[in-house]
Simulated scan of single mutants.
Amino acid sequence: MSTYKFYDTATKPEEVYKSLSKDILNLTIKPGQVITEQEICEKYNISRTPSRDVLQKLKNDGLVISIPYKANYVTLLSIETIKQFIYMRRVLEIAVIKDFIENLDDKQIHKLESNLDSQASLLQSDFTAEEFYRLDGEFHAIWFSATNKLKVWEQIQKLQVHYTRFRMLDIVVIKDFQSIFNDHQKLVESIKNRDIENIERHITDHLNSGFARLGDKIHTEYANYFIHE
């Protein structure tokens, strides 16, 4: 397990869990990488029992898998799971946007355009992939919030263990932030025009675009990150 920071004082188990979860989701800790109780104890200055509890929570989240008599590994990315998640999210997101445009007003349009402005400003700065990913999430959350469906959005976040890491791989490796921003611009224009056909097309293309950008790298350079069913 990569150790970028050691803690001088004991860290609460919940903080350890959040730190490791974040490092796994943003690919600081790579798919397939070994995580041991001993390393967690040493890095975060905690005892064996809370270390085991943290590992169990990561297993429950689908971020870590334990192979008996061997080790704990960060789960590999499942291409089939990612594709099925994209299918589910596409169906849900299009349905929510249809509800969203029924009561679309200037206030909601302002929220969309304000987020786009923030994305545009970020692209002109020295930003991190995590900062862009956060704005991306806030952008999509706008229509879930406006239609009183944030619980649906929260469930989507909980289910996208593989997709989040896939998106981070896309963002970190390809770094085509402008393309993602352009997708968002097209989607906002279609929403403002209440153009359902183009909304469906843009959402479908946007959610699947990571496969197009990563291309053969999934099967070559980063093949060891994936389960190839």
Rank of each mutant, 00 (worst) to 15 (best):
Y17D: 01
D170N: 08
Q157R: 10
F144Y: 15
F139C: 07
T220F: 05
I29N: 01
L112W: 13
L77R: 04
Q185C: 12
H206D: 04
T75N: 13
K158A: 08
D99V: 03
S118V: 01
N26M: 09
E130I: 13
P68M: 10
R165F: 04
E229N: 14
Y73L: 02
T147R: 04
L122V: 02
K70H: 12
G62Y: 09
E200H: 10
S125F: 08
T3C: 06
L207W: 10
D61M: 07
S78W: 06
G215T: 00
L135M: 12
D183W: 10
S2D: 08
G32W: 01
A10W: 06
N60P: 04
G210Q: 02
T9A: 14
L159R: 09
E229H: 12
K59T: 11
G215Q: 02
K12V: 05
T81G: 09
E15D: 13
L25T: 10
N72C: 00
N26R: 07
L25M: 15
Q178K: 11
E93S: 15
N193I: 10
I94E: 14
I218Y: 13
T75A: 13
N103G: 06
V74L: 04
K83D: 04
R89I: 05
P50W: 05
V96R: 08
V152P: 04
K217S: 07
K98D: 01
E102F: 08
I191G: 07
I227N: 08
N148K: 14
I180C: 08
Q160F: 07
G62H: 14
V152N: 09
L122K: 03
D170E: 07
G210K: 00
I97Q: 01
T128K: 08
Q84S: 14
N224W: 06
S51Y: 08
A141C: 01
S179A: 15
N182T: 05
H219K: 15
M88K: 11
Y4M: 09
I82N: 06
Y69K: 15
P68R: 03
E42R: 10
E154M: 09
F6S: 11
F211E: 03
E138N: 09
C41H: 04
I191K: 03
D105V: 00
S121Y: 09
L207I: 12
F127H: 10
V64H: 03
F144H: 11
I142H: 06
F181E: 07
I79R: 02
Q108Y: 14
K111M: 09
G32A: 02
I109K: 05
N60H: 11
I94L: 14
W143N: 12
K107N: 03
K57A: 03
T49Q: 12
I82M: 04
I191N: 00
H228F: 10
K217C: 03
Q124N: 15
T81V: 11
E131N: 04
L104P: 01
T75L: 06
Q124G: 01
L20V: 05
M88L: 11
S125N: 13
K158W: 04
D216H: 15
A71Y: 15
E130R: 10
F132N: 00
F144A: 03
S47P: 00
F127K: 00
L92T: 12
K98N: 02
V188K: 00
H184W: 03
S125D: 13
N193C: 06
H228K: 13
S114R: 14
E93M: 12
